[in-house]
Structure formats: structure tokens, C-alpha cells
Amino acid sequence: MRQLKRWGPGLLLVSPSIILVGVFVYGLIGRNIWTSLGRRTDYVTDRVLNPGGYLNYVQLLSDPRYHHALWNLLVLTVVFVAGTMFFGLLWALLLEKGVTAEGVFRSILLLPMAVSFIAAGVVWRWLLSPAQGADQAIGLNQLFLKLGMPGLQSAWWSDPGPFAMAAMAVPAIWQLSGYVMALFLAGFRGISDDQREAARVDGATEWRIYRHILFPQLSPVALSALIIVGHMSMKMFDLIYSIAGSNSYTAEVPATLMWIQLFPQSDPIAAATNATVLLTIVALVVIPYLVHTHRSERGDR
């Protein structure tokens, strides 16, 4: 009873959140899965639209259009994550030792994060226009021509090739590299100078200090940045909607396909199925990460 009196209040304080998260996250996920198992036929022609049960998932997962969307998501995620990690780390490295006007540099590099994806999409849509050549080029292609670098022109995400979606990662990298920079910067600054000084006294080069002292300590930061940025890619909808419009085959990913399933196609069951698969993909990456941090914290304690 004394035990209960000790931790009881804590549980009580957290209980509203537990209930809210329980309902809004787990309850609704459950409801969504339930919806995804529904069966529906066209009331006029009796055509089976959604077969019901696990067959809905079979139907979705065997659809070539869905494969195309998944492939796009993969390309987008890989490029986006690699890009933000690269630039975030680069900028953090450039800034972490302290430079004049550091505040200015830092603020500007962090600025894109303040802009919403929808707002950014409005201007990036123009920037990433696929027309090339002096007659037609606008946006970045036009800029490259003006700067005398016509070879840099590209059809960007409208390119019919399989890796076109990589171009869609460019605005996303632009927006979120600053966040990764902030994480790494905070990470660097959290490591006391003494370690570096001690290493320098021992005669270590700057590069070896980074490699053997600093980077290993930053690996938790890197990992959490990786997971956060990676899962943002899966959810990405606003940016693509804003740049490619609401019905673009070339730039389709599961999230935009879901919008089409729900609204123009009025197929909530397929949309629910799509959403559940998306959740599963995210879970496959996130759950191991959460278990890992849970265990390592248990270990620390």
C-alpha cells in the first residue's frame, strides 16, 4: 500500500495522456484496420470493389500502381535521408568550432525549417519545372542557363526514368537539413572541450579527434536524426501535393495515392488498407529503434 502511495500519484498525473494517446493512437489505428477489412460491391453493377478481409491487402499489394508508388517512396526516402544527414553534419562541422557571425549562418540555415511544406511547395514547383533549353526553361533550369551551366539542367521529378523521385527530395532536404544541423550542433557542444584538449595534448590530429572521440559519442544523435527524418519521409504528403498536384502518376507515393483513393475514387476501404500498410512499413523501422533505446536506457539505469 505504501508502494502504491509512492507511485500512484505519478500514474494519476499521466493517466489523461494515457487515455488520450490510447484512444487517438491505438484506438483509431484499430478502427482503421477494421475498416480496411471491409467488403464492398457496386450497388448498380454488383461488381466486387473490395473483396474483404486479407484479400484487400492482396489486391493493394499486387497492384502495379502501388508498386510504382512504393518504389518512388523508397527512392525519395533514401535520397532525402542521405541528403539531410550529409548537409546537416557538414554544416554542423563547419560551425561547431565557432566562426564569426555564427549566429547569422545558423539562423539562415535553420530558416527553411520554419516554412511549411505547403508554402515551400508553391515556389519549388516553379523551381523544379522540367522544361529545358533556352526556349522553354524556367525555374532552376533557367537559372543554370543564365549562370552558364546548361549541363546542370534536368527534368527533375518529371523525368520518366525510375529515379525521378530523387528530385522531389531536394525541397525536403532544403527544409530539414537545418534541423539535423541543429541536432548535431547541440551534440557537439554537449561534449566538453576537455576531451578534445586532452587528445590534442596527446598529439592527435583534428581528424582523429573527430573520428575516435566525437563521432562515436554522436552516434545516438545520428541515429535519432536518422529515424526522425526517415519517418518524415514516409508521411510526406503536403510537399508532393503542393508540387505535383493532387493527381500525378509520376510523383505518386502511398500517401498521395491514399488521398486519391479517399476522395476522387471514393474508396475508403482501399484507403484504409493503404494507410495500414504504410503504418506497418514505418513500424518495421521504428519499433526496433524504440526497443533498442528502451533497452539501452534500462542498461544505463
Binding site: R125, P130, W157, I243, T250
Partner: peptide
């Protein structure tokens, strides 16, 4: 025709 993109 010119090269356009889906969202244009």
C-alpha cells in the same frame, strides 16, 4: 509541345 510537369 513544350515539357510540362504534372502540377503545372
Amino acid at each position: 509541345a513544350n515539357t510540362a510537369s504534372d502540377g503545372d
